[in-house]
Design a protein around this nucleic acid. Sequence first.
DNA 1: ATGAAACCTTATATATTCTATGGTTTTTAT
DNA 2: ATAAAAACCATAGAATATATAAGGTTTCAT
Lengths: 223, 223
Amino acid sequence: MKTIRILAVDDHEMSTMGYKFILEDTEFDDFKVFVDTAKTFDAAVEKIENSVNSFQYDILLLDIQLSQAVEGPAKTGEDIGIFARKVIPKTKIVFMSSFSDNYRINSILKTVDPEGYMVKTEIDQKSLQAMVLTVLNNPPYYTQKALAAIRKKMANDDIVLDEKDKKILHFLSIGTKTKDMVNHVSLSLPSIENRKRHLKSVFGVEKQNDQALITESRNRGFI
Amino acid sequence: MKTIRILAVDDHEMSTMGYKFILEDTEFDDFKVFVDTAKTFDAAVEKIENSVNSFQYDILLLDIQLSQAVEGPAKTGEDIGIFARKVIPKTKIVFMSSFSDNYRINSILKTVDPEGYMVKTEIDQKSLQAMVLTVLNNPPYYTQKALAAIRKKMANDDIVLDEKDKKILHFLSIGTKTKDMVNHVSLSLPSIENRKRHLKSVFGVEKQNDQALITESRNRGFI
DNA sequence: ATGAAACCTTATATATTCTATGGTTTTTAT
DNA sequence: ATAAAAACCATAGAATATATAAGGTTTCAT
C-alpha cells in the first residue's frame, strides 16, 4: 500500500505529536500515512533539503510562528513555505495557524498559495482527515474561519490600497496623530489628509471621524 | 419546530423540484424546511416583494442565467441577489450556477457577496444539506470548484486590472486584432500596445506573443 | 478662552499616462 | 521569395492625476 509522507513543523511538540498520532492511526482507503516532525525553522529546512533527492514529502504542515533560535529577522513557517515551493514544488503545503486575521491569511495566500489553511481552533480528528484527502485529491482545503476571511477579501477586492494607504491606516489604528505621520509615511501633511479623506469616501464613512474609518477598515479586513 | 423558508429560483423546473424534494425530505435536527420555487426573474422578484412584510425567506437559492421573458437587458439571478440584499438584507443568498469560470464567480462575490456558491455539477443530496446548515450557522459555503477559482483569485490579488486592461484581454482572447481594438477600447493604438506590453510584463510573459498572454491570464483567472 | 490638532481650500509643481508620429521587426499570403 | 499588413518600439508633446505649499476654518481639550 502506498505511503503518504507528511512533515509537520511546529515549535509546540504537542501539536506535531497530535497530528502524528491522529493521522498515522487513521485508516485511509488507498494509503497509509507517515508523519515526520520538526520543531525549528532550521530543522525543517534540513529535513526538506534531505528529502529533495530521495522520497520528497507529499504534504507539509506548517505553523506560521516558530520560536527563534538566534536573534535577527524572524524565520517563520511562511518562509519555509516559500523555500519549499522552490525546491519541492510538487509537495502540497498546508498552514496550521493560530492566526485567523485577514491580514495574515491574505499574505500567506499570496506568497505561498498553499493547498490548505487551517485555523488551529478548528482542527480536530475529522478535519485533519478531511484535509489530507482534499489536499491530495482536490485542493484547496480551508477551515471555516479561513473561509470567512477569504470571503471578506473577495467582497472587497475592488478596493486597492497602496503601501502609503496601508501605512496611514496602520498608524491611525495605533493612535498616531495625523501631524506626526509625516515622519513615517514620506508624504506631506496635506497629502496625508487628502488620502484620509479619500479612504473615508472609499469605505463609505465620509464626514465621519477617524474611529469610523478604523472600524470599517477592520471590518473589511484591511488592518 | 421552527420552519426554514427557502425560495429556489431556476428556469429549469427539474432543478428547483430537486432542491425541494431533497430538502423537504431531510430530517434536520432543529428545524424543517419548506421550499418555494420560481421559474422567472419577475416571478422571483414578486415572491420576494410579497415576503418583505410577512415571513421573509431564510435562504434564496439563485440560478444565474434565467430565460428571458422580454427582449432587453438580461435580468439574471445576480440582479435578483442585488435586489434581495436591499429589501431583505438578513436573508442568506446562495448561487447555484453552472458557471465555474473565475470571471463570473469573482463578479458575483463582489456584487452580492453571497453566503454560498455551488457549482451545479457538484450539487448532490449531501452537499445540499451541508450547504443549508453551513449557510444558516457559519457561512460561507463554497463547493470545491468555486473554491478553486477563489484560490486563484486570492493568489493573484496583487495584480489589478482596470476596465481597459480587461477589455484588451477579452478582445485579444476572441481574436480581435490590435489595430481594431481602437474601435472598442477608447484608447489610441500606441496606448493599447503599451498596455499589452505592460500586461505581458505583469504576467511574466515578456517578449512572448499574445497567445502566451492569453493563456497566462486564463490560468490566473482574469478571463 | 486659548492653543493644538484636525480639516479644508486654492494655486503651483511634479509625476504619470495618453497621444501623435515615424520608424523597425515580424507575420502572412501569394 | 517578396510585398503588404500587422505588430512592435521609441520619442516628444499634451492631458490628467497626484503632491505640495501656504493659508484659512473648524473642532476639541484644558
